[in-house]
Amino acid sequence: MGSTSDLIRTQIGIYIIKVLEKETAHTKPFDEVKESLRMPILLSEADKLASDTADQLSAAIRHSNKISLDDLAKQYHLTVGETRPISSTDPLLELANSQEAKNAIFLLRIGELNPPVRTDRGYVVLSVKSIQPAHQGSVEEVRDRVIADLKREKSAEMAKGKAVELARRVKANEKFDAAARALGLEPKTSDPIAHDGSIAGAASGKQVGAAFNLKAGDVAAPLSLGQNWLVYRVAEKTEVNTADFDKQKKQLTEELLQSKRSLAFEAFRTALDTRLKQEGKLKLMPEKLKGFGTLG
């Protein structure tokens, strides 16, 4: 009791810890810790199962280079999928844009299987169905993509044009709702938002940050949001109430301090955990968890 530690360096600062109170080590009842143990164990088991299956698939592929993807899928109850034809510069969205998977594809021969590759969506076994020499795309090959690109560009141009026209009309003293409907748009009124808030289905407070510098009734310049455009008018504005802030200042200060204390303690705990593991003074024995009983 009352002992003081040496300087402890963490990612967010340097601390000295003083022991104010000691509590005898004890084991929490299983009911208190069951839920906190469940998810890590389930995730660990799922990851191990996937890893074991990947090892089995690798062994099967190494054992016979004549096994087909369909046969392998039937044997291990896997789902077979097919990507569109891709080039080395195309994104591979079907496989979480995995660079490792893309590299493997362009090293395979037709019908050859690649050992499982881990992606953000799980393990995949790759096989090349056909190889097409680089060529200028035919009309049939690029038709759908060209049409989709043209429609997207046309839609974006129309959206921008309507946004600019709506802003112009409202600034010319035309009613916002009437002007929007005349352009085939649906006007909506959001709930009040703060800097860290958002307009549901539209934009974040950060994206419409210009609104906080406008007066009630002002219309902001059209805002590009990807393929969409947003035009908004400040319906009303509530200024900061300094009296309310003064009343809440003590509570806010305490909450901020508590948050910083929590961050400092977590940084200390992590640093201490790492140091004790490196020094061999802390050993984790997951097999002992089995003594807690069934998690179901």
Rank of each mutant, 00 (worst) to 15 (best):
S259W: 08
E254K: 12
A210R: 14
F176K: 06
G201S: 06
V170H: 00
A216L: 12
E254W: 13
G217F: 09
A220V: 04
A167G: 01
F176I: 07
A159Y: 02
E236F: 12
K188N: 06
E153W: 06
K162R: 01
A203Q: 08
A172H: 02
A202H: 00
G184V: 00
R152M: 08
R169A: 09
G226E: 02
A264S: 08
Q258H: 06
D244P: 07
G161R: 00
T253L: 11
A221L: 10
K206Q: 15
N228I: 07
E174S: 07
A172L: 15
A194C: 13
A179E: 03
G201R: 05
V170L: 01
L183W: 02
Q248K: 14
L252I: 09
G201A: 03
S190D: 09
A156T: 05
A163W: 00
A194R: 13
D196E: 11
R233D: 02
D218N: 15
F265K: 14
K162F: 04
S198N: 11
L225K: 01
K215R: 15
V240E: 13
D177T: 05
A243V: 06
Q251P: 15
E186L: 13
A159C: 00
G184Q: 02
A178D: 14
K188V: 04
D244K: 09
G161H: 00
G209A: 11
E236Q: 07
K162L: 01
D177Q: 14
N213F: 14
A211M: 02
E174G: 07
I193N: 04
S224E: 09
A163H: 04
Q207R: 04
R261K: 15
A211K: 10
N213D: 14
E254Q: 10
Q227I: 13
F245G: 10
D191I: 15
G197M: 03
A180R: 04
D244Y: 10
A182M: 07
D218Y: 15
S155T: 08
E165V: 01
A178M: 04
E165I: 06
Q258E: 03
D246T: 12
D218E: 12
